[in-house]
Design a protein around this nucleic acid. Structure first.
Length: 660
DNA sequence: TAATGGTAG
């Protein structure tokens, strides 16, 4: 770091709030906490937040190495100076001096113990990524600093947002540190290309034929393009002239089975070169050593919340300059590198300097409920980091916040005056999106939490059911068929529960692994849904949710009734619980296998991956609604119109007036 | 009969 330690220490001990600017890899995430620890004879207690779990865990391990201490909970070890806390693992104790944690964890601590008295210093790392949670933390911390005059805050960021952060914290001092990085040569296209997959493949072959050894990392937007590029490269490799080294093409995206993901980290033996074709997972989340060449396709997929329709859409969009810089940097981590941008230099200068913060593009039901829980009544006037300057932004914010408030009102989390209800408080504490919290609490009240927990746990984990490569599709679907048949046409939620029940009944972990592989379900994800044996420091989702419910049961009558019910009656009741959370996601049959949503009157189709696809049912409920080539409902269950009439008579009669 | 950027609790 170019700024010397004593200078930084002087500034940190004097400043209430400091903005520290430095590129990823400058060592600030491991060094700064150790500087702080030295300030006050080791009396400091430091929380360092990270947007991602892996980063929190790895940083804690590195600092433990550097300080020659062991990580952990074990308080008998005097040396347990460094620890970490993430959702599934707590490796920290009351003695931990430097605690790395995900920003979501710090947010929970803040909501449960408002003053964060256990810390003397809070370090928010990677603040420039502008996740919803980091943004919320900054707002809450700004208020907290007024109450806790002795609390030190350090916001660490890449260059771009430093001034904005400084202004937000009333002109906090901005300090700069420089990391060690190698130069990366940039190349642009002279004119735009039409087929980005083809251009990526040709660039890769050209690098391979003419450049010195070193691995290649290429960025494309999605799984489809990546699989296509890998297939094309594998075909072309066959016809490489003799004497040219071997080229090994590997895909990388989150929905890929973990085993295949690991392959990108393996060193290739001998005279060979690796090319990894990845989504933006390789931009921040995974670092692959040995990369000297980057090919940047210039696009990524972003989730955009259409509050007018109440649906998420996934769009392929141009990246921002800061994404481009991050991608380029991947070529210069170990030595000088080269970056091939598959767009023109003019196009580059036309890119936005950064992507829109998450809070501006996503469903804000969760952040709004969080603010309400924290006692904020005027959510529009709250000190949002994004101080809206343009009327358009204010308008968008109002519309987004209003639709989130309406959703929360419909879920009975807010009352007529917009105040948080008792139910809303319980919902806000559960680590689930508001809709799923509503479902689970309803199930708990009805005494069927047990089976609903199976399903809710599955829905709240990412990349559980994987998408097989087209070659293997039929084979995998055949293995899944018995579980679909066993659902008796009750829909995808019941199918999901059939999977969990089967998994649970398998006798050994190798059986479970093997079965997951057959049906293309992620074993790693499934073991987070439900771990069969649990260490003290580990918890799975099902257990975590169950313990929240137990803490709630003092005033709710809830003995488990699910075992007394026949399977079909139970399944009906399960779906009725989901209706209380997903009332807005219901649709009635139209001629021609189309459906019309009850709430908005839009036409939608059942996604072909659903077990209800092609069936003739009067009405459906779905937990996911996405727009790709058409509007699709995914995760679909048939529903009975009587249930709707019973649960929400007003909703149904008002909405279907005129429907014939 | 079509298709799933990445995170977090």
């Amino acid at each position: 770091m170019c700024m010397i330690r004593t200078d930084l220490e002087k500034k940190f001990s004097r400043n209430h709030v400091t903005i520290l600017v430095g590129e990823t890899g400058s060592g600030k995430s491991t060094q700064v906490p150790q500087f702080i620890l030295g300030l006050n004879n080791g009396k400091e207690k430091i929380a360092v937040t990270q947007p991602r779990r892996v980063a929190a865990i790895n940083l804690a391990k590195r600092v433990a190495d550097e300080t020659k201490t062991t990580l952990g909970q074990d308080v008998t070890k005097l040396s347990s100076l460094v620890g970490y806390t993430v959702r599934f693992q707590n490796m920290s104790s009351a003695k931990t001096k430097i605690k790395y944690l995900t920003d979501g964890m710090l947010l929970r601590e803040l909501l449960l113990r408002t003053n964060l008295d256990q810390y003397t210093t809070i370090i928010l790392d990677e603040a420039h990524e502008r996740t919803i949670i980091t943004d919320l933390l900054m707002g809450f911390l700004k208020t907290l600093l007024q109450r806790r005059k002795n609390l030190r805050l350090i916001v660490m960021s890449a260059t771009i947002d430093a001034d904005k952060f400084s202004r937000f914290f009333d002109g906090a001092e901005v300090l700069y540190v420089q990391g060690r990085r190698f130069p990366v040569q940039r190349y642009y296209l002279s004119k735009p290309v039409e087929d980005i997959v083809d251009a990526t493949v040709r660039t890769a072959i050209q690098i391979h034929a003419s450049e010195p050894m070193g691995d290649i990392l290429a960025f494309l937007a999605g799984q489809e393009d990546i699989d296509k590029a890998v297939d094309m490269l594998n075909d072309m490799i066959q016809s490489l002239p003799k004497g040219v080294p071997d080229l090994i093409a590997l895909p990388l995206y989150a929905a890929l089975p973990p085993q295949q993901q690991l392959k990108v980290f393996e060193k290739v033996a001998g005279n060979k070169r690796k090319i990894i074709i990845a989504t933006n997972i390789a931009e921040t989340s995974l670092t692959i050593s040995g990369v000297r060449y980057v090919i940047d396709g210039g696009t990524h997929k972003v989730k955009v919340w259409r509050h007018d329709l109440g649906l998420d859409s996934l769009l392929t969009m141009p990246i921002s300059k800061s994404n481009a810089a991050q991608r380029m940097g991947r070529a210069g981590r170990e030595a000088a590198g080269k970056c091939y941008r598959l767009y023109t230099e003019t196009d580059y200068y036309g890119l936005k300097s950064q992507s829109e913060p998450e809070i501006e593009r996503c469903d804000v039901a969760f952040p709004i409920l969080t603010l309400k829980l924290a006692g904020v009544s005027d959510v529009l006037g709250w000190n949002w980091l994004e101080r809206p300057s343009k009327a358009a932004i204010i308008f968008a914010l109002i519309r987004t916040v209003m639709s989130a408030l309406m959703q929360l009102y419909a879920l009975k989390a807010l009352d007529d005056e917009g105040q948080i209800t008792e139910l809303g408080k319980k919902m806000a504490v559960l680590p689930l999106p508001p809709h799923l919290s509503a479902v689970l609490l309803d199930a708990h009240q009805k005494g069927i939490a047990d089976p609903v927990l199976d399903i809710v746990s599955c829905l709240s984990i990412e990349n559980l059911i994987m998408n097989p490569h087209p070659d293997k599709r039929d084979e995998v679907y055949e293995k899944r068929l018995p579980f679909i048949t066993a659902s008796g046409g009750m829909g995808d939620l019941v199918v999901l529960r059939n999977y969990v029940q089967h998994y649970r009944r398998l006798p050994s972990s190798s059986d479970r692994k093997e079965w997951c592989k057959e049906v293309y379900i992620s074993y790693r994800a499934m073991s987070n849904v439900e771990k069969v044996s649990i260490n003290q420091s580990e918890q799975d989702i099902r257990n975590q949710l169950e313990s929240y419910l137990k803490a709630e049961s003092t005033n709710i009558h809830s003995e488990d009734k699910s075992v007394q019910l026949s399977p079909s009656v139970l399944n009906e009741q399960i779906i009725q619980c989901f209706l209380t959370g997903f009332l807005a996601n219901t649709a009635l049959s139209l001629p021609g296998k189309m459906y019309r949503t009850i709430a908005g009157g839009q036409t939608i189709n059942i996604h072909p991956s659903s077990s209800v696809f092609g069936k003739n049912v009067d009405a459906i409920m779905y937990t996911e609604y996405i727009f790709t080539t058409k509007a699709y409902a995914r995760n679909v269950s048939p529903i009975d119109l009587e249930w709707l009439q019973r649960i929400a008579p007003h909703f149904l009669s008002r909405r279907t007036a005129g429907h014939d």
